[in-house]
Design a protein around this nucleic acid. Structure first.
Length: 296
DNA sequence: AACCACGTCAACCGCCTTGGC
DNA sequence: CGCCAAGGCGGTTGACGTGGT
């Protein structure tokens, strides 16, 4: 058999910050008896702590040779040089700096030195001048970089909104139907003119949002299309939602291709006009307003 | 004065190495 | 030689402090 386990999982040992009483107990015990067996120390010192926790507290805080206070410029230089040779070997780096712990050096590196090197155009991993133009751009122009990121996120958000609109168009509420019967509802114009290319989507092809549907179902849009545009007299169809059909490998379109279809400039531009113009959104209902709504 | 964002650092977690059996 | 616990190490987390709005 080997040794007995370090910290028993079922033992109700204290965790978190150390109190001054605990520090005092540990200090007293180690200065009198040394630290040959960390597993026995907490019991013998009267502490309800794991041996590992005691060792960490001692090596990182209580040890008498610990140097307090901030790091000097010289120490920082040494750490940078050693890191370029040793990498993230914090304990090895610490062994070259008397009074400094590996934890302390690691924290300094992650919070301060890494940024310092980046700012001066040095890759903190390789310690070589940064050559990646994107990374360099980000460092030199943080503001422009943020703007660029924001623009990219806006584009993604627009695609999400478009997907949501498609979802809404795929499931018309019953209240829309009388207007359609009168053949003057703006939604119909929407289909006929504004975003006519969406007819491509409103066919038997799976909706671009189908990938987001957790149950892997897709609205069978042909039923919807028939109800809304061609078959408006069939009232019995209006009250029920379009049936759902499972996505099958043969009728599914790769998501990348779906995205490309959506970004087809002709209807993307039209939708963008709607999305860009805040006046087209009813501030109370959040619904999209069409040209006819303004005329009436 | 209250809130928020960010930086710092002590402590924990989990993996790896070492060494006793 | 293999198993297994102790010790060591690096990554990560969360509490706390501080400065800005």
């Amino acid at each position: 058999m080997g040794r007995y386990p370090c910290c028993k999982v079922d033992e109700d040992l204290k965790k978190g910050p150390w109190t001054s009483e605990e520090d005092e107990k540990l200090m007293d015990y180690i200065t009198k008896n040394g630290h040959t067996n960390w597993q026995l120390i907490p019991k013998k010192a009267g502490l309800n702590r794991c041996g590992k926790s005691c060792r960490l507290r001692w090596t990182n805080y209580l040890r008498p040779d610990i140097k307090r206070g901030g790091f000097s410029e010289e120490e920082e230089e040494i750490i940078i040089n050693l890191h370029s040779l040793l990498g993230n070997k914090w304990s090895k780096i610490a062994s070259h700096l008397p009074g400094r712990t590996d934890n302390e050096i690691k924290n300094l590196w992650n919070t301060h030195l890494k940024k310092k090197l980046l700012k001066s155009g040095i890759d903190p991993v390789t310690h070589q001048p940064i050559t990646d133009p994107n990374l360099l751009f980000n460092l030199m122009n943080p503001f422009e970089s943020a703007l660029r990121l924001q623009a990219e996120l806006t584009e993604i958000a627009k695609i999400h909104i478009i997907q949501n609109i498609i979802q809404v168009l795929n499931t018309p509420p019953p209240t829309l139907i009388p207007s359609l019967q009168e053949n003057n509802y703006p939604m119909q114009q929407c289909y006929n003119n504004t975003i006519a290319p969406y007819d491509q989507i409103l066919t038997n092809e799976p909706s671009p949002i189908s990938n987001n549907l957790s149950d892997n179902m897709v609205v069978k849009s042909s039923i919807l299309e028939n109800n809304m545009i061609n078959n408006v007299d069939n009232n019995s169809e209006y009250s029920s939602l379009p049936s759902l059909v499972p996505v099958t490998p043969e009728n599914s379109v790769p998501f990348d291709q779906q995205i490309i279809d959506i970004i087809n400039p002709s209807y993307y531009d039209d939708l963008e006009k709607i999305l860009d113009d805040e006046a087209n959104i009813n501030p109370l209902s959040g619904k999209i307003l069409f040209e006819d709504d303004f005329l009436s």
